Each structure stands twice: as structure tokens, then as C-alpha cells.
Lab assay of single mutants.
Amino acid sequence: MASQGTKRSYEQMETDGERQNATEIRASVGKMIGGIGRFYIQMCTELKLSDYEGRLIQNSLTIERMVLSAFDERRNKYLEEHPSAGKDPKKTGGPIYRRVNGKWMRELILYDKEEIRRIWRQANNGDDATAGLTHMMIWHSNLNDATYQRTRALVRTGMDPRMCSLMQGSTLPRRSGAAGAAVKGVGTMVMELVRMIKRGINDRNFWRGENGRKTRIAYERMCNILKGKFQTAAQKAMMDQVRESRNPGNAEFEDLTFLARSALILRGSVAHKSCLPACVYGPAVASGYDFEREGYSLVGIDPFRLLQNSQVYSLIRPNENPAHKSQLVWMACHSAAFEDLRVLSFIKGTKVLPRGKLSTRGVQIASNENMETMESSTLELRSRYWAIRTRSGGNTNQQRASAGQISIQPTFSVQRNLPFDRTTIMAAFNGNTEGRTSDMRTEIIRMMESARPEDVSFQGRGVFELSDEKAASPIVPSFDMSNEGSYFFGDNAEEYDN
């Protein structure tokens, strides 16, 4: 783990906690998980779902989305002020799938948001429990990260689609708070800032007046979040320049895209947490497990152990491969979309394939898809080993990566060399080191050039047997250095459309 220093740990961010010791953190995270579980059980009762239907990941996603929508204050306010045809701002819903006479049927349900809020609060001892809501947002974000390569979004903001390893959390809503900021990748933060800068260039009043003052505060806050992700002084200094700019424009845009590229080699610290679907927490609570009393951590053995003992089902389209669908969801559960496939294969105990080789589309089923041909199958979400999630980018030494994705962002704290394609990355730096950030740029390029592919990161860190909950005997895996390590390699994943 990167030293926490003055930073709060993510469990504290996750639970809005002030400084807590490890036991208190485990208890408050457990409380959050228990609340999600209780809410899910109650919703299944309301909807009269069978046990099997309640364990269907598509039903879980609909129920999670309903509660997130019920608590989305800004959108609710907007919907009330701008009524649109056929949208009731006070209601929320989605597809629920039921097994009827041996076939899967889709039923569109509609609930009062007020009623959903009441059920959620009741499951969370009367609190709004925003930490639990954020947790579900991060699960949705991790699922998107594993399912889609955001080529269009990258290109629109002047970045290269091969930089997708920097895009963790790119679909997280803005209201996801400190826990959300911690899991956002460098590219995601750059993209958010670039969008602001572009608006400022096109709209003279963007930075002016009372609204402009708020915009400015948001801009500086985002700059500080991004600065905190960088691990070298030169990158941090460049972020200070971007933040202090009187009138952010093209120079800042250039600096930010430069920094994003540099992060492929001088990786930023991005938190990883295993956020599971509500249909995993519900049955665990129903079986009598007391998360608050037992304590829970999002970055240790607990999620692995929970998945070892969970039964989750998914709808499967006619030509999809259930094992591939399982891999997709497994990666999402562990926030591992940008991790090295060699490491993932070792931990999972079966070969993890790149996205383009998977015969599976996303987990969600569109409303126009034919239910007649839908089957369902068990998702295999178990693992051979477990490993500690990392909050750091690993040290800054790398190795060759593949054509589709030119770097990785480690999820697990496991000893290995970190793949990246130096030639491709360095070719993108057209040696432009003039301007006010020239000395920093020169320094950053120097550090990137001296990074050695064969150097090892996370020295001495290994994986653990599932029986080793105290992480007492690390097993340090050895990897084939020459092997392909990137998930979005030469990829044809669908595009994420909101």
C-alpha cells in the first residue's frame, strides 16, 4: 500500500469516517454492505422474486439502478423543472426478469421514488447511507470498465484509444464523492478537466460571474484530485501550473494530454476495490451473516471469500459463452479491467482472455432483445487465490505491452514486471518541450526514458491461498515475461453508450 500519510484510507472515504482504527473501519464497511443486503432482500420480497430470480444479476442491476435514481437529487430536480413526455419524475423502474413456464419473461416495473427511498433508509437504520449508494455506483463503473473500451470518449477529448488503461471510473457520476474520486484513473480526471476547458473556450461566460466562481472551485478541486494521483514531483508541479492558470485554454489542454500520456509509464495511484452486485450481499445477509459484527474490507480476502460461497446467475444470449460472461463479471467484481492478464489468470486459476476474444456482450439486456431465446446460467466467480488490492500504480518500471492497449494499471499487489510499449508511448511525445512547463516536461520525458521494462514492481508481494486469511504465506508467482498482458488488445469491444 502506498503510505497513507495525511490521506484517509478508502474504507474511511467509503464510510465518510473520520480517523478510525482498522477494526472500526471493518465494522463501518460491514455496516454499509449489510445495509445493501437488507435493502436487496426487501426489494425481492416487494417484487415477489423467487430465490433464483433474486440471484439473477440482471435483476440486481435494475434494483441497484432504481435506488441510485431515487437518490439522484440533481436529476430529480431537473426532471421536475423540465417535464418530458412519458417520463414521470417521481417514478423509477426498469426490467425485471421472471421464469414463467420454463421461459424467461421481461416485466417492466415502476415504483415511486419516495417508496424506494423509504425501503433503502429502513434497511440502513434510517440513514441515507450515501456510502452504500456510492458502492453500487463503483460496481456499475467497474462493470462498464470491463465491458467497454471507451474509444470515442478518448478520441473526443484528444487522447489515444490505446490509453484505455487510464480510464478507470470514466462512467462514474460526478456525485460519487471521495470514494469515487479515489477509483478514477488519470485519464478519467484528464477527460473531465478537458471537457471543462473546452467549454470555457467555447463559452465566454463559463468562468464568469457567480456560476463561474463555482465552476472555478470545481476545476481547482479536480486538479488537486489529479495532482494527488501522480507520484513524481515534476508531474505534480505541472498540475500546479494547470490549476493556477488564470484562464484555462489550449496550453492547459496540451499540458493535460501530455500528463495523461506520461501516466502510461509514470503511473498514478488509483484505488481498486472489489464492489459486488447487491444480489451477492442480499443472500449472505439472508443466511444470517452479520457483516457489521464480522467486519468487512473491500481490499482484502473478504470479497473473494464471499464470491467463493455465492451463487449468481445471468441471462445468456443464444451465441454467448457462459464462461466468457463469467470472466467479464469476475473482472468487474475485482475492479480488474486494466490489470495484467498474466496476473489475473494466476489468481483466477483459469486463463483470462483479452476482451476481443470473449464471445459475450454486456450483462444488460436491451429492451428490444428477444426473450424467447434467452437461457440462463451460473456465473463462475470463484478464484484459485486471493491478493491484496493496490492503491498505487506500482513502481515506475515497465515491460512490453500489446498493440491495442499500451500499458496497464495494476489492481493487485503482486510481484511482476509491468508491461508497456515504450516505443509507441515515446513516439507520441513530439519533443515539444517549450513553453512555461518546459523544464517539467524535459524531466518527465527523462524519467520515462530511463524506466526499464525488466524491473520488478511490488517486490516480494504474492497471492494467498483462500485458507490464508491473515495473509501469512505469500506465494510469489513467476510470469512468462514475453507473454501478452493487455485486456483490450487489438480490440473490438462495443462502445459504451450512456
Rank of each mutant, 00 (worst) to 15 (best):
190 V>H: 02
158 G>P: 01
306 L>M: 15
199 R>M: 01
141 S>L: 01
100 V>A: 10
281 Y>E: 07
145 D>S: 06
171 T>L: 04
231 Q>C: 07
360 T>Q: 06
311 Q>I: 11
319 N>A: 03
141 S>P: 08
417 N>A: 05
448 M>D: 04
90 K>H: 07
133 L>E: 02
455 D>I: 12
53 E>H: 03
97 Y>A: 05
335 S>T: 11
35 G>P: 01
335 S>G: 14
72 D>S: 00
330 W>A: 01
181 A>L: 12
312 V>N: 11
483 N>A: 03
431 G>S: 15
429 F>A: 01
156 R>D: 01
338 F>A: 00
26 R>K: 15
167 M>D: 05
371 M>H: 01
493 A>Q: 07
169 G>I: 06
397 N>E: 14
61 L>G: 03
352 V>Q: 14
280 V>P: 00
209 G>F: 13
45 T>I: 12
289 Y>I: 14
145 D>K: 04
106 R>S: 11
182 A>H: 12
388 I>F: 03
425 I>D: 01
83 P>F: 04
280 V>C: 15
308 Q>K: 15
354 P>G: 02
253 F>Y: 11
240 D>E: 12
350 T>W: 07
19 R>K: 02
472 A>R: 02
319 N>F: 06
116 I>R: 01
125 N>S: 13
68 L>E: 04
245 S>M: 04
461 R>C: 03
64 E>N: 04
34 G>P: 05
328 L>V: 15
130 T>W: 12
48 K>F: 02
155 V>G: 08
382 R>N: 01
399 Q>G: 07
148 Y>L: 02
108 L>Y: 05
467 S>Y: 04
270 V>Q: 12
359 S>V: 13
181 A>Y: 05
127 D>A: 11
278 A>F: 13
123 A>G: 14
478 S>C: 14
3 S>A: 11
253 F>Q: 11
454 E>L: 13
146 A>V: 14
402 S>N: 10
406 I>T: 13
276 L>Q: 14
355 R>M: 06
142 N>M: 02
426 M>R: 03
441 R>I: 10
57 I>V: 15
248 P>V: 10
134 T>I: 10
231 Q>E: 10
242 V>W: 08
417 N>H: 13
423 T>I: 10
222 M>R: 09
332 A>L: 03
